[in-house]
Amino acid sequence: MAHSASMSSRQASADADSSTHHPTLIESLKEYARGIAGGLLFSLPLLYTMEIWWAGFIAGPWRLCILFGVTFALLLGYNRFVGLHNDATLLEIAVDSIEEMGIGLLLSMAILWMLGRITPRMPLQEIVGKTVVEAMNVAIGVSVGTAQLGGQSHHEGQQQDNAGSLSDNKALFAQLVLALCGAVLIAANVAPTEEIVLIAVESNAWHLLMMSGVSLVLSAMILFYSDFTGAPKRDPDSGFSTVLRGTAITYGIALLASAAILWFFGRFTGTAFGVALAETIVLGVPAVLGASAGRLLLQ
């Protein structure tokens, strides 16, 4: 992602008018290559994690459907605000989202098969379950990879357009979607592991408070105080309230994402409220990292 600035000038002329023409085969192949690279970069740890394989056959079909729906909504949101040019129609966004979902499914099926986690003799139920659970994170990775790992300059220009033409409400909504995508991408890597439950159960109130504090500090640091790539030039007079609000919203999104992911992996079933809250705060630390960085990097 950091390369985009340096590579942009070289490809500027080639990409300047690509949006109005049929893309050439080479162009689309390159785009798929970026998508595959992104998908694997973000989700290979998950494909190598046994708790995820188990989740594939433990989660019931309705829970998998919900996962499908949520991922599709995230893809739609991401493609609406980032992946495509600003005047993309809903149909266009939907077509691209379905494509990314399909690539995610194919990719996770291929990797799971390579790793010997699914075999043709397994019942369809188990194959579908494992593939779907893995594919959702791969699909978001594909989407991010296609949009981010390329070096097009029109992308940067379009970002400005996006920011300029979106109303305040829409801009906030776009930020929320990006924060959610970032939180899911990062938190999903550790969410299904036993370690989250272990830390949650063994932490006392002070540890949990410390985790919340660290989450807030990390978020404020990334969003406002580190000149992170993509961070808006902050008006020095904008004051503490802006920082407080931005940080609080991001942490809220991170906790929401943590809770949703933990629920999906069945971590809340039969669990006392206090323990569930502790798990959410524990997972909130990586989630807030993803959410804060996502707001800046994924755009």
């Binding site: 049929h22 085969l25 309705w62 499908f68 379905i98 399909g102 579908v128 593939t131 779907v132």
Partner: peptide
């Protein structure tokens, strides 16, 4: 804006089939 070449359409076709198939099965 919905202009794609045959490769992109076939990827989309396979994807749509796969997504609908999996969702339908679930």
């Amino acid at each position: 804006n919905l202009e794609k070449n045959w490769l992109e359409w076939s990827v989309f076709g396979i994807s749509a089939l796969l997504v609908l198939g999996m969702l339908g099965y679930l």
